[in-house]
Every structure is written in C-alpha cells, then in structure tokens.
Amino acid sequence: MRRLLDCFYAPYAALVLVLLIPPVCLAVILGPTLALRRETGRLAVRLMLLCIGVPLRVRGLQHLPAGSNLVVCNHASYLDGIVLTAVLPRHYSFVVQDGAGRWPLVGQCLSRMGVVFVNRSDSRAGAAATRSLMRKLHAGEALTVFAEGTFEDEAGLLPFKLGAFLMAARCGAPVVPAAIRGSRRLYGGGRKLPRWQPLEIHIAPPLHPEAGDHRTVAVRLRERVREQVLRLCGEPDRDAAEALEQAA
C-alpha cells in the first residue's frame, strides 16, 4: 500500500510544488520590507505543505531564547531550510552555502529573505562572512546553521563543522540543538520525486558556551550540541560508523 501511495502521490506533489514555487518566490522578492518577505515565506511554506498533505509537528518552541542565539540543526534534504522557515520566528537569519544563491529565482528569493551565503571554498570570503555573522550575533540577532555543511543520500548524522561553535564561543551566544525528522524520506535519498511523509521538528533547551579558550570551548560545545541533535533526529551516527570502519 505504501508503494502504491507513493506512485500516485509523487507526481501530484511534484506538480503542486512546480506550480506554487514560482509565484511564492515572486511574492517574496517583491515584498517591500524584510519582515514582510519573511512572513510571506513562512506562510507560503505552510500553505505548500498543506496542499501536498504533509503534517508538520513542532515540539520545543518554548526553548528558543530571546536575543542572540544560534539554532543548529541536522541536514537531510533540500527541504530542511524551507521547513525551518515555516517554524522559526521571522527574526532568524539562515546561513547556507553560496551555491544556493545561484539557483534561478529561488536564489534571489533566498537573498531577499536575508539568507547569509557562505563560500567555504574561499578562505578570504569565508572569513569575511564569519565576521559579518559575528557582528549580527553581537547585535542581538539570531542565526540558523546546518553544522554538517551538506547532506548525503545515506541516512545518518555527519560530523559537525566547528565554525558555528567558534562564533558562539567568541560571542557568548547560546546554541539551540534542533532536529528535523521525515525530510529525508519526503524529498531526499537521491530521489527525483517526493514521497509522502509527516514532518517533525524537535527543539531542545539552549546550551551555553563555557568560559575559557575559545577553540577549546567551541570543540566541547560542538560535542554537546551534536549529542543532542543525534538523540533528536533518530538517525545513526555517521561519524562513529566511519571511525569504526577506519579502525577495522
């Protein structure tokens, strides 16, 4: 029955998304203020999920602190960013790889929503982006980061990059562990078409950086946050699995 459902659902959901995404992007791009553009994006994502029949359950919103903080989430699908857009308050800015900024129409939409693009292959550009992000944290803004930096077809949580945690340590900003469940099956695993799957987002209480050397604090904070994200996401630990393979 599940396979039969997927056969009918996949083309329907794909058609709905193809029809809705362009006008949504245009509505966001034409919005006169950042607040309005972000609110348009939030409502549009919820509308799209409703139209394709995907339930969205959120737990732990009360854990989001006021003021400067970083939400660190697992990454399993191209949908993760837009799903979090529908859930997090509109004052959160998203940090994504700069390649997304070159996507036709979608890239301009992301830019107009205040997404911060980071080029990890260019050390100078990456350093400039980091300084810009730290200024945002010092100014009391909130950021959302996918600390794995990418996602793969195979299920499992990848190692976390250190950058977000160094920023948190230097700025004294709390880090909020979060996890998305269901997005890999909905539109991941290398598939060309979506499959029906409910979505869940779990948000844990914030973790605060300790006092001490920034790099040492960042490494410890990364470990603590990753433990929480691993517990919440329900996927295997790819970092531990790869370490065992190398040892064998």
Rank of each mutant, 00 (worst) to 15 (best):
L110Y: 09
S111R: 15
S111I: 00
S111L: 15
R112G: 06
R112W: 15
M113H: 05
G114A: 07
G114V: 10
G114T: 10
G114E: 11
V115A: 09
V116N: 05
V116D: 07
V116A: 09
V116M: 13
F117T: 11
F117M: 15
V118I: 12
N119V: 02
N119E: 13
N119W: 00
N119R: 14
N119P: 04
N119S: 14
R120Q: 14
R120L: 10
R120C: 12
R120F: 04
S121M: 10
D122H: 12
D122I: 09
D122A: 15
D122R: 09
S123Y: 03
S123R: 14
S123G: 12
R124F: 05
R124D: 13
A125F: 00
A125N: 02
G126M: 07
G126R: 01
G126S: 10
A127C: 01
A127F: 06
A128S: 09
A128Y: 00
A128K: 08
A128N: 05
A129T: 09
T130W: 00
T130H: 06
T130R: 09
T130F: 13
T130A: 10
R131T: 07
R131H: 03
R131S: 02
R131N: 03
R131Y: 05
S132E: 09
L133K: 01
L133S: 01
M134F: 08
M134D: 05
R135Y: 01
K136A: 08
K136S: 10
L137D: 02
L137S: 05
H138R: 12
H138Y: 08
H138D: 15
A139C: 11
A139K: 04
G140V: 06
G140E: 08
E141C: 06
A142W: 00
A142P: 09
L143E: 11
L143V: 10
L143R: 03
V145G: 08
V145N: 04
V145A: 03
F146H: 05
F146K: 06
A147C: 13
A147H: 05
E148Y: 06
E148I: 04
E148Q: 14
E148F: 03
E148G: 14
E148D: 15
E148T: 12
T150Y: 00
T150L: 01
T150V: 01
T150F: 00
T150W: 00
T150M: 01
F151D: 00
F151K: 00
F151Y: 14
E152Q: 05
D153P: 01
D153C: 08
D153F: 07
D153S: 09
A155K: 12
A155R: 12
G156A: 07
G156L: 12
G156P: 11
L157I: 05
L158A: 08
L158C: 03
P159E: 04
P159I: 04
P159K: 05
P159G: 07
P159D: 04
F160L: 10
F160T: 09
F160N: 10
F160H: 10
F160V: 14
K161G: 15
K161W: 01
K161D: 06
G163K: 02
G163M: 02
A164V: 08
F165A: 11
F165E: 06
F165Q: 08
L166V: 15
L166I: 13
L166H: 11
M167S: 08
A168R: 09
A169I: 14
R170W: 13
R170T: 08
R170L: 13
R170C: 02
C171H: 04
C171A: 15
C171I: 04
G172Q: 13
G172S: 11
G172M: 15
G172C: 13
